[in-house]
Simulated assay, not measured.
Amino acid sequence: MSAPPVAVGGSRAELPAVVRAWVDGWARSRGTDAPRDVPGGFRIEVGLPDHRARYVLPAADAAVLRDLVGAIDTPGLWIKVCAPREALEPALTPAWRISEPQYLMVSALAPVPPATPPPGYTLDLTDHDGIIDARVLFSGSGSGDAVPAASGRAALTTEAPGTAADAAPAPPGAAAVFDMIGTEAAHRRRGLGRFLMASLAHRAAELGAGQGVLVAGPDGRALYEALGWRLRAPVTAAVFTA
């Protein structure tokens, strides 16, 4: 199935600040070292066998891609570019594998009244040091034990988009990066994704975040657009395999 058309909002000049917020919050969410600047973008040390590190680039600059692809010879290194597949693919060799399309999305956050869970479900929400964890638990089975039905996380960035990199943690207007959002198969199509996102957004806004940022796959994109999130840029990811 072909990807839906990409209608991108916002200017290209603002995109590097959004990407900086994304990589900062993603690294905080996953517990990795902070991203470091590299030519054309950022590098995050992930440390997994099949995902050793990722390069995240706000634009598909031909010279940057040529030098980066030419320097990579370790399997498990990824490149993620805020551009469509056709902008990255010509720079790659057969040793690279491109994954499914992804989408960088943004949304304004405001401390609106918290959402109410669907009948039979409860919310377990905690936050510590700018990391918000939410679990939706199902207790309507009659067994007496609540079981996980959906979960997700939001990490406040250490800077507001467009501010200096050494800004104090979670300044007013900082972003919250939404990550690891998922619903168990038996509990899908019950409004849990919408409830989970609203709960995370509410708490993030209370903590000072003015913008939400995330990267979604094709299925997630449809959900987030229905919730009012805007597509900021397509994202193409490729991994070096040999």
Rank of each mutant, 00 (worst) to 15 (best):
A3Q: 02
P5H: 10
V6S: 11
G10P: 04
V19K: 11
W22K: 01
V23R: 12
R36D: 15
D37K: 10
G40H: 03
V46C: 13
L48M: 08
H51Q: 07
R54M: 09
L57W: 02
D61W: 06
D67F: 02
A71T: 15
I72S: 09
P75R: 04
L77V: 15
W78E: 04
P84A: 09
R85N: 13
L88T: 01
M105I: 09
V106A: 08
P111A: 08
P118R: 14
Y121H: 14
A134M: 07
R135I: 12
S143N: 11
V147Q: 09
V147C: 01
P148M: 06
A155D: 08
T158K: 07
A160L: 10
A160V: 15
T163S: 13
D166N: 12
D166M: 04
A167E: 15
P171Y: 04
G173F: 05
A174T: 13
A175E: 05
D179T: 07
G182H: 12
R188F: 03
R189I: 07
G191D: 04
R194H: 08
M197T: 05
M197F: 04
A198D: 06
R203H: 09
A204V: 06
A205R: 00
G208M: 07
V213F: 04
L214K: 05
D219C: 08
G220A: 06
V235G: 00
V235R: 01
F240A: 01
